[in-house]
Design a binder for these strands. Sequence first.
DNA 1: CGGAAAGATGCAATCGTTGTCACACGTGGA
DNA 2: TCCACGTGTGACAACGATTGCATCTTTCCG
Lengths: 345, 345
Amino acid sequence: MSIPASRALTPARQVTLADIARAAGTSASTASRALSGRGYVSEDARVRLREAADRLGYVPNHSARTLKQQTSRVVGVAVSDLGNQFYANLAAGIEQTLREAEYQMILVSDNSDETQELACARTFLAMRAAGVIITPADRAAASLLSRHGVAVVEVDRRLAEVPCDAVVIDNERGAWEATSHLLALGHRRVALLVADTDWTSDAGRLQGYVSAHAEHGVPVDENLILRLGFHAPDSEVQIAAVLGAEKPSAIFAANNLLAEHAWNVLRRLRLRLPDDVSLVGFDDVPWMAMVDPGITVVGQPTVEMGKRAAQLLLRRTLDPDCPRAVETLDPILILRGSTAALPQP
Amino acid sequence: MSIPASRALTPARQVTLADIARAAGTSASTASRALSGRGYVSEDARVRLREAADRLGYVPNHSARTLKQQTSRVVGVAVSDLGNQFYANLAAGIEQTLREAEYQMILVSDNSDETQELACARTFLAMRAAGVIITPADRAAASLLSRHGVAVVEVDRRLAEVPCDAVVIDNERGAWEATSHLLALGHRRVALLVADTDWTSDAGRLQGYVSAHAEHGVPVDENLILRLGFHAPDSEVQIAAVLGAEKPSAIFAANNLLAEHAWNVLRRLRLRLPDDVSLVGFDDVPWMAMVDPGITVVGQPTVEMGKRAAQLLLRRTLDPDCPRAVETLDPILILRGSTAALPQP
DNA sequence: CGGAAAGATGCAATCGTTGTCACACGTGGA
DNA sequence: TCCACGTGTGACAACGATTGCATCTTTCCG
């Protein structure tokens, strides 16, 4: 039952409202009303037009509609790194919610690069996006967008200087729980691996690490805090160096990538978990539950965060003046075999 | 440094070409030529217009352009399941290539549902997408799109009845290598876990499994072939059942999800890899290299497949008549500790 | 010096859809 | 009878950018 070649080859100027109006013997206005369901149309005309639309294979032209209505059903989404499962899951959650609401998602992976982020924002503006969801790396994008009246939702971290909705998790609390867990197990030299950013997420995790120490009366040793660039090629070398020089008995890796690096280093150095070193990660990804021992981790509801962000955006699209919402979700500490009490010397 | 509220509140009818033309004392035509770089414009007018555009914060209106030019720089991408790392990586590869070419990606996760897939196709048509990249679940979408003159590239599997470009890997060869590896190790009862689809990918993998058996003179036992629905909730139960009833000495799991299920079952049953059972997966994902022993796997260049698909699409966009391309990439067998010689009884 | 070619510009039409407006019906109540 | 109102319809003007065409100027060559 293949399509006849002739059909496929016809240059086939696209079918427009005017075409189906002609076929049904009405005007384009009536056709528009019939198909969009707005305004008066007789039942008779409605069925004739619908039938004509089906028969001719009418496909509405979104560009024309967007141009006329000055708004689209497209939502721009910019994440830092699609290759990282965390952002992929975030995107998956956003996509699902948007699709169910019959919105489309333009997805960009901006590498946390300010220039690219701003370029994305400009593109979203050019497309008259109904809104934008972003894991921000800079304040400029949100400013630009909101100045043009486009709703912005920040996810995972907050950065904007303009008021906008946001979905984050309680990073400080997550880090506090992870660190407290280690301190309660008797560890006194807990290394912190944290991304070298100025994001609220990393700042919160650092803060949680510090406040847990304060609460347990353990002084923070700056030498145990390792700030690592996102895609620094020598991350593992640096981690190994700290392990050698500072002899921490536990490591708190403040994101899934750093946890993976730490795990690789430990394996390479033949340090056993949890006998030689304890390890806690942040953001539960599949391998952490599968390796032996499993990695104790601060889990975040990643897909859920994406869904919430999309919901906030849709809400604001419907009611631009609804009160600003900042949702803070709770992380949970998942205990696995990678953490144990500090062995008595 | 914050944006004055007045700025943010102005309803601010958007700045149009006509506005900057007026500001620079030219006509809109000249402004269009100056900014798009097509046609004659004096150097003098060009700089005046550019300056005016900057000053007024001009953002071109993509909808208007698309409407007039009858084509956009948007590419529709429909994958089966964004939550699966395979598809996420595919999308990441596509996105990167498109972004570098200054195209935008509309991403949809269609759950391999024919209805949704068709709905996506219609949306892409409505947006006048320059092309569509799809991991097809049904032939209808590609037919519809190509009938309307939209270029389609199939990735991972081929299904379309209309001629279109495609990027796949040599599934049969990958499966042949995996199976041959097991047979060469002396295994005679190799279970196959394969998705229950009518896709070329799974058919190829089954074929490779069969031909490897033929080549080694080992008869295929149909009872060892387990076809599993994509999101069947009882996958692991079924796998456990086959393990119990058929006592295979090795398992070939023909995608990353099935490998994960198999691995879970083996762990739950306390069967040791590779002493009790050997396991080979298909599609290398991070956990496979991290668990102990690592999982022997047929690796596919997932991100690269995405990039190639996007390249094919861009090529066809530039030259709609270029010869049809079907790229078949090579999988590679990565040997790890999950496979070993069949112990002599 | 004549005239062709290249350079520079603006006018007006166009893309497809929507929304406003005016108008033409009936119907029913005052 | 007349007016108000609810329906139903079509003409027409946007929305903003692009582009073919006509027009005018400048340049350059024979």
